[in-house]
């Protein structure tokens, strides 16, 4: 596929599932440049002229289309801030597969800041999948994603935000503004190990009656890694908000969770749940009585938890 070496191809596959030229619209960004771009009949991808990034226009009524926009960095020391804006028309149902993989074998840190802004039209549904991963023995792999969503009336967004492994440092910000009857589901999966740090903040403002948010964050922190999770649900209308943050802490890791609820309307129903703890020993024991070793049982529980 294209002009990628094996490491780049593997990373591309890991973060976006892309193994060749996909159907539909796509933009492949490798080491700061687009190495392949294609617009489909309904989805237009146009490079920005004032700064790095692309604008993606999805025509009204577009259904069952997928756009792939993965990013790969394999040049050590590359630092970039990329602005991608999505304009999704009315009555659409589309999937956006983003994702960023960094390979670093050099002496300088590689950094990707991805700022994604979504304008989702009325009655539209968007699925957004973003996987992050870092590999290579070199300096730091740093990923700072910002995702902002403006959800119009009756629209819906489902986000799957996943950090698989190898990201040394991340600052994640996810912000959503919801109009009447809009809905957002945010699933976050974070895995940190070694001396990594991860900071995630999710802010949902429920401005329209009938709007709702469901945040489910699951994370595993191993070794000396540190995680901070902060969710803020602001209910300014007759709305429903739910946030659930669950973390497994292992070894010498540190995890903090700060869920906050802000009800500004008597009909706002907001709930948060947060739990941090080590793997429950009875779960390990149950799997060991089925013949798994302690290590096997641990990885079964962690992999299942982050699935």
């Amino acid at each position: 596929m294209m002009d990628l070496d094996k490491i780049e191809r593997d990373l591309m596959k890991e973060v976006s599932g892309v193994t060749g030229i996909p159907e539909g619209a796509y933009n492949f960004r490798v080491n700061g440049k687009s190495i392949g771009r294609h617009s489909s009949e309904k989805i237009d991808i146009i490079p920005k002229t004032d700064k790095s990034g692309i604008e993606i226009y999805v025509a009204d009524g577009t259904k069952n289309e997928i756009a792939h926009i993965p990013v790969i960095i394999s040049a050590s020391g590359l630092e970039e801030a990329v602005y991608n804006d999505f304009y999704i028309g009315d009555n659409c149902e589309v999937t956006i597969i983003a994702g960023c993989g960094i390979y670093n074998c050099g002496a300088s840190d590689s950094i990707h800041d991805g700022i994604h802004t979504f304008h989702v039209g009325k009655n539209s549904k968007v699925y957004y999948i973003e996987k992050h991963c870092g590999i290579g023995p070199g300096a730091k792999k740093i990923l700072n994603p910002t995702t902002r969503l403006n959800l119009s009336e009756n629209s819906c967004a489902e986000l799957l935000l996943e950090q698989i492994k190898g990201v040394d440092s991340t600052r994640r910000l996810t912000e959503a503004d919801l109009a009447k009857n809009a809905r957002i589901v945010i699933k976050e999966r974070l895995f940190t190990h070694g001396k990594q740090s991860a900071d995630s903040k999710i802010v949902a403002e429920l401005k329209g009656d009938g709007s709702s948010v469901d945040i489910v964050s699951r994370s595993v922190a191993q070794d000396y890694s540190r995680q901070k999770f902060c969710s803020q649900i602001i209910g300014a209308a007759k709305c429903r908000g739910h946030s659930e943050c669950d973390a497994i802490i292992m070894h010498k890791a540190q995890v903090s969770a700060e869920p906050s609820l802000d009800a500004q309307n008597v009909d706002a129903e907001l709930i948060h749940e947060a739990a941090i703890g080590k793997i429950a020993s009875e779960q390990l024991i149950k799997l060991m009585t089925l013949g798994l070793s302690r290590r096997q049982a641990e990885s079964q529980i962690i992999n299942g938890f982050l699935k």
Partner: peptide
């Protein structure tokens, strides 16, 4: 019975 998160 033991409860799990993520084990089906």
């Amino acid at each position: 019975p033991i409860h799990f998160k993520g084990v089906t």
